[in-house]
Design a protein around this nucleic acid. Sequence first.
DNA 1: AAATAAATTTAGGCATAACTAAATTATATC
DNA 2: GATATAATTTAGTTATGCCTAAATTTATTT
Lengths: 223, 223
Amino acid sequence: MLTHAAEDYLKSIYKLQEKGGKVSTGILAEYLDVKPASATGMIKKLKTMKLVRYERYRGVTLTAAGKTVALEIIRHHRLLELYLFKALGVPWDGVHEEAEKLEHVISEDVEARMDEFLGYPTADPHGAPIPDKNGVVIQTDSVPMTELQDGQSCVVAEVSDSDSALLRHIGSFNLYPGTAFRVVEVAPFEGPFTIDIAGQEVVIGREVAKHIFVDKVEDPDNV
Amino acid sequence: MLTHAAEDYLKSIYKLQEKGGKVSTGILAEYLDVKPASATGMIKKLKTMKLVRYERYRGVTLTAAGKTVALEIIRHHRLLELYLFKALGVPWDGVHEEAEKLEHVISEDVEARMDEFLGYPTADPHGAPIPDKNGVVIQTDSVPMTELQDGQSCVVAEVSDSDSALLRHIGSFNLYPGTAFRVVEVAPFEGPFTIDIAGQEVVIGREVAKHIFVDKVEDPDNV
DNA sequence: AAATAAATTTAGGCATAACTAAATTATATC
DNA sequence: GATATAATTTAGTTATGCCTAAATTTATTT
Ligand SMILES: [Mn+2]
Ligand SMILES: [Mn+2]
Ligand SMILES: [Mn+2]
Ligand SMILES: [Mn+2]
């Protein structure tokens, strides 16, 4: 069996690979809040287990086996987040931290039972896709809110999940995944966004908007 | 924070203290399936943390602080067992293993939410008492089934929880906590018990009976 | 083509938690 | 009271996963 640390490294490599592309030792170390030397050590261990491809100074890539493990852990994490949210009422800014510990510890049986309880869901409370039990992930084409223009209507697709305070802030505007809104005005010179949510106008700063991803929709008023 | 291993040692010392009385290094090591030398090492560490009293060759005892930790972990374990059983339908012979890992990892918040969901329960699926959030445990005076005489009526109070195969076997007779039965016959020379459960007669061997604890009740037929 | 800066690796340590083997202490027996 | 047996402790080893500091390699300037 893999250690918790090894699972966290694989999960992180997967996520960085998705976002950026090349995953360097330094990037990985920063992401995991360890020193680069520690990352080198683990990477070598993962290589002997054939979970990553690696050549020194060249960065890491997951092998098929490594990707399978990474997706398995991500599946645990996101199912747990949704389960804690829906079944136990844990607030959406608390589920991430909790799931971070539980993801390494639940059995396949409990995973399957949560999945069934939740009706085989495809997204966690922050809108991130939950890989299915075969590791298949639904790809979305959502865009950062910062790319929106005046008058654009859209629906919140996903929100960054690791900063608890930011989540509470976003939650205070009701900007949960699935919530629809329309951009009323984008202030010039990198200014804030004024948006209309169910008739209420609120102002969202750029720093917050960066962490909100949306799906564009045709404005119903313009049909 | 305490390590998982330290928590397991404290929990085990508590349980052995309850059962037997004096907890020796050897007994503790056997219970935890480690070598006596390993137990000595951990005991010393726990002593520096003032969680146990200890003098070499004299056995260990929990301090008040140590007992608090032990009860906290036992509370997690038993709440988790009941939660997995009732909320997710995990079979009663599977909950122990699962809870053994989760008990070290759940937050106080999740503990409180499970407690509320379950309606502040006082016993786990095997009948073991769940300490309340202040560490108060309800004491029971149940007796091993092996002490019963012919004709005695009783209710199952508790069943040993660590052997999964034994639990499945006991479950096949419906001998869950709360189930009433009457002893029809105790075969001589350390023989098996014939009992009547809701009109069905079944035969229970002594080895199994040792692991079933009951509360005696007056036989309704004899009132 | 050097020199400098940045990234990465190697080397050496530390803490935890297990192990084995040998030494010590306690208990039981004659 | 000496001796054998059993229990326990000490000492030394291993593995994981982290650290710091120094050495090495790669990338960027001049
Ligand atoms: Mn799984
Ligand atoms: Mn999430
Ligand atoms: Mn607790
Ligand atoms: Mn139990």
